[in-house]
Design a protein around this nucleic acid. Structure first.
Length: 421
DNA sequence: TCTGGGGTCCTAGGACCC
DNA sequence: TCTGGGGTCCTAGGACCC
């Protein structure tokens, strides 16, 4: 039996913790460049604003003057997420954090009634201690737990935020009422294809022969189907012990043409990626840099390219990662083009202790490790980027636009855990 | 005017090997 | 004229998720 805890309208709920005036209003949180809607209050959902809606298209759905738009503050959201997960982790076994706002876990108690009471108390406790509303769903598989969680959220008043989807008869009924697009693992393309064949609900889908699902689609979809039937297939392994890749990328606030400016962004991205590697105790075997033009500008030629560089010895040291990212960048840079986005990705990640040292590599790794530890220490104490690597530029004008921050000065004193907003 | 960022898994096809 | 069979590894791209 799997439990799934999920924070409701998470980013909006975080903002409401600090500003109760947002309660009852149409509120959306915007993506990095104030580009797309990435979280909506129930009121915004009811007004028909879709997930991922570009900010400038909100007016197609509702009166934009009635919608409060906020730039995202992900450091804050991460901190609140950690608090929610900490409370959950103390009460249940095997908490597997699947994303910033949801986590799977095992049933805390054999007896359903006892479990239900514990869970209902947890929902209240999280609301009280952190201020975030959460819902919890239970079912025999993760795919079904997703559906159960959805019901817990939708019928909050009846369910107390906790819903059990266990009895086969109940599962049958719910699957008949679940649209095929609402199944976890079935996105836009697959649902369109299935609907064209008359498969409109999860119940229709479950009736197909699994062998046919596999041959006409994929093993992944067959696993989704089996999960809906109640067979645990470990679909998408949430036990993410360590990342397999780590990426830092941004859309720039405007189209850039200057090589040094973009190089400055690449250095920043590479540094951040290397910092995360070190925080996880991992090393990368290769580094990839990519650049992209502006997809939406028809007046500019669109260019997109990437280059992956292999390291002689896997590393997490900032200077190495930055050097490799710049080497890759030099390979894909083309003069005279406009660039709107770039990113740096660490790949072939291994756990740090298991490095295969290259005997031809002249670097002294223990010295480098000590140096990086010192830099991380300074940055942790005085704020990120107090000490940074300088390729001699530092004049990047690439920062994304974020024009919708609220003044928190009057509310922040409630909150002591936030550093470096 | 204005369209995010960060991940995972799977498959097909090419290069290469014996 | 006739041109095998079987395997591995790597990469690019497509699908999905939040």
């Amino acid at each position: 039996m799997y439990g799934l805890v999920d924070c409701n309208n998470f980013f909006v709920s975080c903002e409401r913790v600090f500003d109760p005036r947002l309660n009852g209003k149409k509120v959306v949180v915007l993506s990095n460049n104030d580009g797309c809607v990435i979280a909506r209050s129930n009121e915004a959902k009811a007004a028909g604003i879709p997930m991922g809606c570009p900010a400038f298209k909100i007016k197609e759905h509702t009166d934009p003057s009635q919608v409060i738009q906020l730039s995202g503050r992900h450091i804050l959201y991460r901190d609140l997420s950690d608090r929610v997960m900490k409370i959950m982790g103390a009460e249940v076994e095997n908490l597997q954090v699947y994303s910033v706002d949801e986590a799977f876990f095992k049933l805390p108690h054999e007896d359903v009634e006892t479990s239900h009471r514990i869970m209902a108390d947890l929902v209240k406790k999280i609301r009280q201690y952190v201020g975030i509303p959460v819902s919890i769903g239970f079912a025999p598989t993760r795919t079904l737990a997703k559906i159960a969680n959805h019901i817990a959220k939708r019928d909050r008043r009846i369910t107390d935020g906790v819903y059990w989807l266990v009895r086969p008869e109940a599962i049958d009924i719910i699957l008949r009422r679940t649209a095929i697009d609402d199944v976890w693992g079935i996105g836009r393309r697959l649902s369109a294809s299935l609907k064209a064949k008359g498969i409109m609900t999860a119940a229709d889908f479950v009736k197909l022969p699994p062998s046919l699902v596999r041959s006409q689609y994929s093993v992944t979809l067959e696993r989704t189907q089996r999960e809906l039937m109640g067979h645990d297939c470990q679909i998408t392994n949430p036990v993410t012990i360590a990342h397999k890749s780590i990426m830092t990328s941004r859309t720039f606030g405007k189209v850039l043409y200057d090589r040094d400016e973009i190089a400055d962004a690449i250095v920043t991205f590479a540094e951040k990626t290397s910092r995360q590697l070190r925080a996880e105790g991992s090393v990368a075997g290769s580094v990839m840099t990519y650049v992209r033009g502006d997809y939406f500008r028809e007046d500019l030629p669109f260019y997109s390219n990437s280059c992956q560089v292999r390291l002689d010895t896997p590393s997490s040291d900032a200077m190495t990662i930055v050097r490799m990212a710049l080497t890759a960048f030099n390979n894909i840079w083309r003069d005279g083009l406009g660039y709107r986005k770039a990113g740096v990705m660490a790949l072939d990640i291994q756990h740090g202790e298991a490095i295969q040292l290259n005997i031809f590599d002249p670097e002294d790794h223990s010295r480098l490790r000590r140096l990086m530890k010192s830099i991380d220490g300074i940055n942790n104490m005085y704020g990120t980027r107090s000490v940074k690597l300088a390729p001699g530029l530092q004049r990047g004008d690439w920062a994304p636009n974020q024009n919708h921050f609220q003044d928190l000065s009057k509310t922040l004193h409630f909150y002591t855990g936030m550093i470096d907003p």
